[in-house]
């Protein structure tokens, strides 16, 4: 077979396919950049955050020669700033970017078809549908998770995180002026801590499912997933509707 399948033949086939299949530019460069910076920040935050709550075994020697928890917190706070500023930038891009940049911030709850599509996608994941559908941006179920878990969870983490930071920065700090109300909203410092921990686990679980679903869809669905968040292009594997 390989002897007959020359490079010229391959080129012809690619040309024929290209006539039928088109890629759509979905994720613009700032969105992709934000995605990966955010992914890195979340990883750093989860790891350092966990070790702030459950510190590593004690260091040896004089206290003045060690700064393990200090560094842990410093890295956590820095990554927190990266995440928060990145998130603000991402919101900005939702206004100036293409329509796909807006998707995760708005749920079309008024759209009956959207709800039907959620049911369809749920059935697809439950192996009740034989073939998947094509989507340009996030599929409706992913859209719901992005908004309901990721966006909401990130906002929760930014608010509780900066409120906890404000406690250390002091009541006269700008942080406290901006985020002190969060502590009152949750009741007290302990409650804010608890929700910050819960938020971390919610986002960890989100990431687990997100990565799994992206890989699975890349293999099983009719469109590209992983390359889309690398080069921004959504390509389709067939030309059926």
């Amino acid at each position: 077979m390989s002897s007959q399948y020359t490079s010229q033949e391959a080129l012809k086939e690619v040309d024929a396919l290209a006539a039928k299949q088109q890629s759509i530019y979905v994720y613009e460069a700032p969105v992709r950049l934000w995605h990966w910076v955010n992914a890195l920040a979340m990883t750093v935050l989860a790891v350092t955050g966990y070790f702030i709550a459950e510190p590593l075994p004690s260091t040896a020697g004089e206290a003045s020669e060690n700064y393990l928890m200090g560094w842990m917190r410093y890295i956590h706070f820095s990554a927190g700033y990266v995440l928060a500023i990145g998130f603000l930038g991402r919101i900005y891009w939702a206004f100036v970017g293409n329509k796909h940049a807006r998707q995760i911030f708005v749920l079309p709850v008024w759209d009956k078809d959207w709800w039907k599509e959620i049911v369809f996608e749920a059935k697809w994941y439950l192996f009740l549908e034989r073939d998947p559908k094509k989507y340009v941006g996030h599929n409706p179920l992913a859209h719901l998770a992005m908004f309901g878990v990721f966006v909401t969870g990130t906002i929760l983490m930014i608010l509780t995180g900066f409120a906890l930071y404000a406690e250390g920065a002091g009541q006269d700090s700008l942080h406290y002026a901006l985020f002190g109300w969060v502590i009152v909203l949750f009741g007290d410092s302990m409650q804010v801590h608890t929700w910050h921990h819960i938020g971390m686990w919610v986002l960890i679980i989100f990431v687990m499912i997100h990565v799994y679903a992206a890989i699975r869809e890349d293999i099983m669905s009719r469109q590209t997933m992983i390359s889309t968040i690398v080069n921004g292009l959504r390509s389709y594997k067939d030309d059926r509707p």
Partner: peptide, 24 residues
């Protein structure tokens, strides 16, 4: 507490993902 609950939930989801991947 929050960490014990979170870790148990993440573990359960991990098992679920593995099962789902196998079924897929």
């Amino acid at each position: 507490n929050a960490d014990e609950i979170g870790m148990a939930a993440a573990g359960a989801v991990g098992v679920g993902i593995a099962a789902h991947a196998a079924a897929s």
